[in-house]
Nucleic acid binder design. Structure first.
Lengths: 347, 347
DNA sequence: CTTTGGCACTCCTGGCATCGGAGTGCTAGT
DNA sequence: ACTAGCACTCCGATGCCAGGAGTGCCAAAG
């Protein structure tokens, strides 16, 4: 809150500038406003108002004799106070539901397909974090022999397969021992919270059965991996959509985006706080915390599994994006995805 | 074979034009050749030779008063007959081996990391098909109950986990029944070729245990999915590298590439025949079979698991790419990857 | 018959000046 | 407080010119 906020007329003008600029990608002139939106005042008055909005930091001028475009602060006030939230049409909503209903039953593929769907719908770059399994329930562990000294440990959580981990041993182990160990572990842990599956207990069971400590390591690794590290994998889709926007006709900007998407780390940092707040979040321009991303914005909506948010759907695009629509799309998709996940478990 | 092939001097000139153009991205002039490579002939002679090479279809001129650049046919003869194969330096080779040694033990992640590595090394776009499991050996199947009417079927092959498939039933099933079914299936199928795990036999076992036919469906689906459909998933990385090349400073070209990468289908078509031949393959420009891809080339090398090729490493870049080096890089990486896969199983 | 120096010709490229238009800021008048 | 009008600024498109790079061809030389 800097000024005692904008008076109603300034607010309307700001909102209209954002709306028009989002639509046209051209700096907005005072005349354009008076002609296309009947404000009942002259362009000269609009010019005065715009000059004040610029002084207040809400608008900027690319050069002296051009129209105005919104600044980060301008978009921010628009998003927080001025825009009307959109709701999806019934058609959109059913389309999302149907595409997700027909999607794969396998978790990774489901996330992938959701990401692509969101990319297509939004015409921007979509990215989705895979579910974090921390709050999930342990269902099953299975140790399987592949060769005398090689095997794989699989952990299944309430979301389906959670992790697998290949292991090698320094001495042979009987497939039977692996089965016995699996049964013992399952008897002990089934339906506990994943986070409560402790390494000490695993070690105790392994010792009890007189098995090598290497197996404890293998099981622990699989459990750990199911708990899904602080930065879960992120699926991304739709980068090519960005090229339709005039702001990317210069290819340099796209390069840093592609690099960041491939690294994943930065993407995760951007959306991490939306996860904890469990609310939709919008980050605009410099709020993304990097000069490279200064002319982009990101909309993020969490999705749930059971009572908790387990991941986020995000849309990344030029700052000049239709915020209300993208929020509606992401929310609608998140809802359908959450629903889909719940169905898969409970049936 | 059109002409009785090129005489030695023409061949050398063609090779030098390709080499120089790959290095500079500028049309190559007759003088440049005589100055930078001592041919012992004058630029006028070179001009005459170049004119004949152009008549023969090996070179083209972007406009009348410019140097020459290679045509598809020019690159093709270069690749097939003129270039000297490169070998990787020891440093490169150990770097690849080390990065892959430290890579994940999980198959999907391993492929992912290999793809990124290849993207970084090649400075182009790399893509890698995930292993096709057809020739793999069935190791284990496990049916696991998640809820009274929901569960997951997991199939493990000699490459690690091959597939998983969630299922829902119309009536409750005891976890015990699932265990019994798993054991029966394993007793029957363990260590058979995956392709020999037939649906009829599965049905017989399910019937024998008096279980619902829905379970047969679940198992069959998982096996089918492990057999990995005709078009396996493809990992891609390094699209941002392409933006360094002058031919992509116009963003339109990149757009179609990104779209194609996302679709995967076209990528698979490009590399499919390299898989069957089990040999490195180079496709140049129009050979890729699409006008959109006409100024690109793709280098493909298969990797093996056991005696068979199970997937391909590819590098996609501008037609003006260092073919010998990229072939060496892809081959070296394929070799390390094959080695890594073999180690994982045999230990 | 092949090679080569020389020369005229073509075409691209970059710089420069010009011009029109779009928009603003300001002032003066309502 | 609003607005009509006007001078001013700046961008972007256009056209033009000069410079240069490179070729093709010819005629002479090996």
């Amino acid at each position: 809150m800097k000024s005692p906020d904008l008076d109603q007329r300034k607010a309307y003008i700001l909102a209209t500038v954002v709306y028009e600029y989002v639509a046209t990608a051209e700096p907005v002139a005072s005349q354009t406003l008076t002609q296309k939106y009947n404000l009942g005042i002259s362009s000269a008055t609009v010019r005065n108002e715009m000059a004040e909005l610029e002084a207040g930091g809400y608008l900027v001028q690319p050069h002296t004799s051009a129209g105005r475009i919104p600044s980060d602060a301008g978009y921010r006030t628009y998003v927080d106070q001025l825009m009307e939230p959109e709701t999806l049409t019934v058609a959109d909503r059913t389309r999302i539901r149907e595409e997700l209903r027909d999607a794969s039953r396998e978790l990774d593929d489901l996330i992938d397909q959701t990401t692509r769907l969101l990319g297509r719908l939004s015409n921007n770059l979509a990215f989705v974090t895979k579910p974090q399994a921390e709050t999930q329930v342990f269902k099953h562990v299975q140790l399987i022999s592949l060769a005398p000294r090689t095997g794989v440990a699989i952990v299944v959580t309430s979301l389906g397969v959670g992790a697998q981990s290949l292991f090698e041993l320094t001495s042979d182990v009987a497939p039977d021992d692996l089965t016995r160990l699996s049964s013992a572990l399952n008897a002990r842990f089934a339906n506990r919270k994943l986070r409560d599956v402790g390494e000490a207990e695993i070690a105790a069971i392994v010792a009890e059965l007189n098995l090598t400590d290497e197996l404890r390591g293998a099981v622990a690794a699989a459990v750990q991996s199911a708990r899904s590290n602080e930065t879960p994998a992120i699926a991304a889709a739709g980068a090519q959509n960005l090229l339709d926007q005039p702001e990317f006709h210069d290819a340099r900007k796209l390069q840093s985006i592609l690099r960041i998407v491939e690294e994943q780390r930065t993407l995760y940092d951007i959306v991490a706080d939306a996860m904890t707040s469990e609310n939709p979040s919008v980050k605009i321009g410099h709020e993304l915390g990097s000069e490279e991303l200064a002319d982009l914005s990101v909309v993020t909506v969490p999705y749930r599994f059971g009572p908790h948010a387990v991941g986020m759907l995000s849309i990344l695009g030029p700052r000049r994006m239709p915020y209300a629509r993208l929020l509606a799309l992401a929310s609608g998709t998140a809802e359908s995805l959450s629903q889909r996940l719940a169905d898969a478990e409970l049936s």
